[in-house]
C-alpha cells in the first residue's frame, strides 16, 4: 500500500509523511514493550546523527523522523532508518531512572480531591497512598513542554475528566484524566481532576536541561506537607533545587 519497508522487525512499518519525514510505526497499542522499541530506535537515530536529520518525535508506538527538506531523498533516509531498525538490540539494558516528584496532596493544592473521594469511593488518604505508591513509566512527552504521558495509574483511581475544563491550571498541578495521570508543566487550560501540586519546576527554559526527564524514565510522587511545599518553593525560586533521582535502595 505504502511501500513500507519491512525488515527483521516485522511489526515495524516505515511510512512517508509528506516529502520530509518518515513515521516508523510499531502498531497502535499502548504497550510497554512496543514503547521500548520506539525509544531504542529513537536513541539509535540520535546516536547515528545523520547529516539530514532535523528532529525526532517519539510517541507511544511510533517514531517520527523529520528530515531537513532537500537534504536527502525519502528513499535514502528510509534505507538508513531500516538499517538502524534491523540492527536494534532485542533488549536494551538501560538503567532504570526514577525521578522523585514531591507532591502536596492537601487543601488548596488538591481542589478536586473531594470529588475524587466521591467518584472513586475512596478516602483521600487512600487515594494518596495509591497514587504515590508506585513508579510511573514515561511513555512519551508532548502536548506541552515536559508534559509526560505516564503509564500505570491504578484502576481504582480512574476518573472522568471535568465536564467543563478549567481555563487556567497552575503549573505543577497533578491531575487525573480517565486512565491517565500527569503533571501540568506550565499554566495551562485543562480538564483533568486536580489532586495535588508539585512545587518543583518540570520545565525551566533557564536550566541547563530545561526538562530533566525523558521518555523511558520513571517518576515517583512523594507526598509532602504544605510546610515542605513552601520550603521547596523557596528553594526553587532561589535556584537551590536540583532534580532528584530516587536512589536504588529507597523503597516505596
Amino acid at each position: 500500500m505504502t511501500g513500507g519497508a519491512m525488515n527483521s522487525d516485522l511489526a515495524a512499518q516505515l511510512l512517508p509523511v509528506g516529502d520530509s519525514a518518515l513515521l516508523v510505526g510499531f502498531g497502535r497499542l499502548v504497550d510497554e514493550a512496543v514503547n521500548d522499541r520506539v525509544r531504542a530506535l529513537c536513541d539509535a537515530v540520535l546516536a547515528a546523527a545523520p547529516a539530514w536529520l532535523e528532529d525526532v518525535v517519539p510517541a507511544y508506538a511510533s517514531l517520527l523522523v523529520c528530515l531537513r527538506p532537500g537534504s536527502v531523498s525519502l528513499a535514502r533516509a528510509r534505507e538508513e532508518i531500516a538499517a538502524l531498525l534491523a540492527a536494534l538490540p532485542a533488549q536494551t539494558a538501560a538503567e532504570r531512572r526514577v525521578w522523585a516528584i514531591p507532591v502536596c496532596y492537601k487543601g488548596e493544592f488538591a481542589p478536586d480531591m473531594a470529588d475524587m473521594e466521591r467518584l472513586c469511593g475512596l478516602a483521600a488518604a487512600e487515594i494518596v497512598r495509591l497514587h504515590s505508591g508506585r513508579d510511573y513509566k514515561i511513555y512519551m512527552l508532548g502536548f506541552l513542554p515536559g508534559f509526560a504521558y505516564l503509564g500505570g495509574l491504578d484502576e481504582r483511581l480512574h476518573a472522568p475528566r471535568l465536564e467543563t475544563p478549567r481555563v487556567k491550571i497552575p503549573a505543577g498541578s497533578v491531575g487525573i484524566g480517565g486512565a491517565q495521570t500527569g503533571v501540568y508543566p506550565l499554566d495551562s487550560p485543562g480538564g483533568w481532576r486536580l489532586i495535588g501540586q508539585t512545587p518543583v519546576s518540570l520545565y525551566d527554559p533557564e536550566r541547563a536541561e530545561p526538562i530533566f526527564y525523558q521518555a523511558g524514565d520513571y517518576v515517583r510522587f512523594l507526598p509532602i506537607t504544605a510546610g515542605e511545599f513552601a520550603a521547596l518553593t523557596a528553594d526553587v525560586a532561589a535556584g537551590r533545587w536540583q532534580p532528584q533521582l530516587v536512589k536504588a535502595g529507597d523503597t516505596l
Partner: peptide
C-alpha cells in the same frame, strides 16, 4: 494513539474538518 506531527500534516478531527498543522503545531 498519539503520534508525532510533521510540518504540513493534515489532521482530521472527529468533526471531519481538515486542519493543516504548521510551525506552531503541538
Amino acid at each position: 494513539v498519539s503520534d508525532g506531527i510533521a510540518f504540513g500534516s493534515v489532521q482530521v478531527a472527529n468533526s471531519g474538518q481538515p486542519i493543516v498543522l504548521l510551525a506552531d503545531r503541538q
